[in-house]
Design a protein around this nucleic acid. Sequence first.
DNA 1: GATGAATGAGCCTTCATTCAT
DNA 2: AATGAATGAAGGCTCATTCAT
Lengths: 197, 197, 197, 197
Amino acid sequence: MSAPEISRKDLHEGRRNQLIDAALSLFAEKGYENATIKDLAEACGVAAGLVYHYFESKEDLLLSVFERHGFAAEMERVLLPAFDRPASEVLLEVVHSYYDLLVERESFMRMIIRESMTNPQLEERWTTMCNTGVQTLARYLAARVAAGELRAHDTEISARMLTHPVVVLRLTGGSVAQLSSIVDCLLEGINKKSGQG
Amino acid sequence: MSAPEISRKDLHEGRRNQLIDAALSLFAEKGYENATIKDLAEACGVAAGLVYHYFESKEDLLLSVFERHGFAAEMERVLLPAFDRPASEVLLEVVHSYYDLLVERESFMRMIIRESMTNPQLEERWTTMCNTGVQTLARYLAARVAAGELRAHDTEISARMLTHPVVVLRLTGGSVAQLSSIVDCLLEGINKKSGQG
Amino acid sequence: MSAPEISRKDLHEGRRNQLIDAALSLFAEKGYENATIKDLAEACGVAAGLVYHYFESKEDLLLSVFERHGFAAEMERVLLPAFDRPASEVLLEVVHSYYDLLVERESFMRMIIRESMTNPQLEERWTTMCNTGVQTLARYLAARVAAGELRAHDTEISARMLTHPVVVLRLTGGSVAQLSSIVDCLLEGINKKSGQG
Amino acid sequence: MSAPEISRKDLHEGRRNQLIDAALSLFAEKGYENATIKDLAEACGVAAGLVYHYFESKEDLLLSVFERHGFAAEMERVLLPAFDRPASEVLLEVVHSYYDLLVERESFMRMIIRESMTNPQLEERWTTMCNTGVQTLARYLAARVAAGELRAHDTEISARMLTHPVVVLRLTGGSVAQLSSIVDCLLEGINKKSGQG
DNA sequence: GATGAATGAGCCTTCATTCAT
DNA sequence: AATGAATGAAGGCTCATTCAT
């Protein structure tokens, strides 16, 4: 019985990922500029110089964090329900899943928001990610309009009204309990004449 | 008749404000850590040492920027219409004014968002500012519920659904044209059965 | 009686020159790459950071050394005697003055030779300096040919034969006593038939 | 008949020499301090660590370059013609061969000149090499004096006047065409009265 | 008030060298 | 022999901050 084979490449990837993950934590917590390479090395129990075997520069490390922790795909998955399921049933699920995703990816969220304020490349990345999410959900809503469930309207906007409050809620410490009200407001509106309960 | 008197104190205030305003620009553009005191001094055409005649430290300068450029008051003004005016008439105005305010205060917005990701004190400030705004608008909406115009609902959430998409729209390059759809969606909802002519 | 006035600009220049001079010493002794900014600062009794108030970078410092210690002008002065003085009388003086100049500027010589092996810009500078010197002396020799003192010949080459051995003599530890033989050989040649005792 | 045997020792020598030759190139081009072991390894297509199987340290590598590429012997061969051949016939050959040798060994020349400015041991090596060359040629010239071809004079100096301008010519981009003038000047002198038809 | 020289801590990065595999 | 991960000591450079003038 031989020991489980771990290839050199795997070891390399392993350490590299360890560094990236630790970098994400540090960058989110202290900010990119305030997190030092020494911090990172210590967090990983290695010498500072080693970081430069894996990344060309601190900025390259930052980009690698984005490469590894970007979650555009997960976001699209979460925001695109089956077209034949009714919105009344599905939207609450979507909003909750979205919220949970943001909780899970909080470090990344905080990091990208911070850096996108300053770095035009990252700003575009973040904008694209947001807009892609919005348009994904809008596509589903449009399908529900076509299916005759929802009235004709600007579905991109309704997608924004579902997703953006969730993001800000997360960042400004609002409670999860409010998520269902969001869906309700959006579906039913707040005008009395259109009311039903 | 003597020349208009400019007191020593006014001169002091003038220069101080000049420094603060330049600091806001720099902090918003490059980020607090990447903006140097020398940058600031150059932007104002003075020597670096002079900054320390007006502020105890760079951090003190940052706080002074918040002191001078915080716009909680303007936000409350914008988000609190007269209770007796109908939402159907007022909300579009509110959303537009809010959007315009964000445009006018863009530098400050970007700065506080960035710094609040990292600095707990500023995070609380930013959270409070957001929540105060939300609650101000919620108070108006509650008044309209009481007035019988709107149906009973969680007005804090509807306030979020009006304001948060506006913020994110601003930051991710959405167009102003979409503002009216926001109000419409919120008032009428998107359900077909709740009909809207 | 007031104290002697020393302007701020003079103080600046003074310190700047002190740094440049110390840098020349260090660069000549240890080589540019082996001389550290800390070395330099210590040699001048200041903090390392101060160097960067006077020079943008270590390379800028190197260039400043060249600016200040280049001696093309002195070299031309030394190598250009009055056209009407006979070579037989003047060349030994020239060679000695040239040798003395090289002794006085030894640090600079060693530095530029070393750096020109590696840095194309400096190589050109050094080449130009050499060639200018050669051509200056060649011009004088040509005047002596025209004056009928010397035979018609390639005066650039004879200028090289006077100056280059002096340089190498300096660098490889030859003795000053040999300088007069150089002049003699050049004037008289070494062929017996042209000999004169 | 077995295939040609290549001993382990030969393989070792082969790789060692490959490393040394690549090191010479790098040291000449970028300078010892600016050439990294990694540069060297890459140039040879091996891992950085391997260099230390062949050399104890970077300095040992430098010394090995001198061991392998020193050309004192070639220089002596080039600078020592048969004593019975007349200088008038031989010197131009010598100067050309010497020039060609310097062209062939340019990398080494540039390297040793550079390093000798800084490293006393190498300086001595370089000085010795120069002086040995000078004395070798001087010995031949002395033989020609004894043979009655040349007048009695300081032959070390005339050897310098033949060799040093050639070196500097090489380094400062002079043309080969000037070599014959050197010999002519030295043989005949430049004084008109010593006439030469 | 205003200047700018001076400090000193600390950061990113490089690199010769070692060593387990 | 060969690899490349890992180390650790510097080195160049930046910058908030102080202080004499």
